[in-house]
Amino acid sequence: MRSALPPSFLALVAVLALVRPAPAAAQLPGIAVERRLAGELSLRVGDTLRLGAAPDSMRGVGVVAAIYEPRPDPAQITKQDRYVRMHLPDLARLLGAPDRVDRFGVALRPGIAPDSAAARLDRSAFGYQAYPSAAIASESSQTFLVVSRFHRAIAVITIVASAVFLLCVMLLKVEERRMDAAVMRFVGVRRRTIFGALLLEAAVIAVLGSAVGTALALAAGAATNAYYRRFFHTALTFSLITPGIVGFSVALSLALGLVAGAAAAWRLVRTRPMVLWGRG
């Protein structure tokens, strides 16, 4: 028999203690144990546990009927809580309060508005407080909204910095081409042709840059996911690069590239060829 678990290992309500082997497992209430808890306690299906609402009241006994993988939840990954699942009568018996319930869920028929249903439930009995699931989700995801806004701010700063960088690259590239542009003008190439060529070059640079950026982002995202999945023992996706994000970034970089290229090319073609040649 193993010692009782520390309070931080409290499951939903139960405290567990392992008894092995099981004397008469078939008659005992079955419980499902979360994979991580089972791993930490080296539990297997068929193991018998002592159960209780507190470490000093281990009155119940149950048998591990299943080990389950909980649904990944971003709100839970940093917490040390571990869970077991029991049939409601077994839980009520264990708690010694068969007529008490803290909370319960109500499934609505299709077409019924959650807000009006919640308001009606609130009016129906004193002491009830009903919440639509969307409100609970919104309340519990405030942290993620802040993080999301923070990411958005970083993205905006990155885009602005990239735009400045792209403009500088284009200006430098155009500066390198002053002599070429002068020669092209001398041999009769029109301003429009030079402008178009530089614009095309800017577009190619922008698309190639966004392709490289996408590849880097995918690699960094994969590394981030691999690291944090292992760190938090979860299947959650921490970095997600969707086709929409890729499309948006390519379109944005193309637009920025074209603007930067047009600005740089316009500056070049407006300059007299003799000035470009260095004799003006």
Partner: peptide, 14 residues
């Protein structure tokens, strides 16, 4: 300027 550019293109070699 446009005509001169065209003339350089078609009538002169550099």
């Amino acid at each position: 300027d446009r005509e001169l550019t065209r003339l350089r293109l078609t009538r002169l070699g550099f």
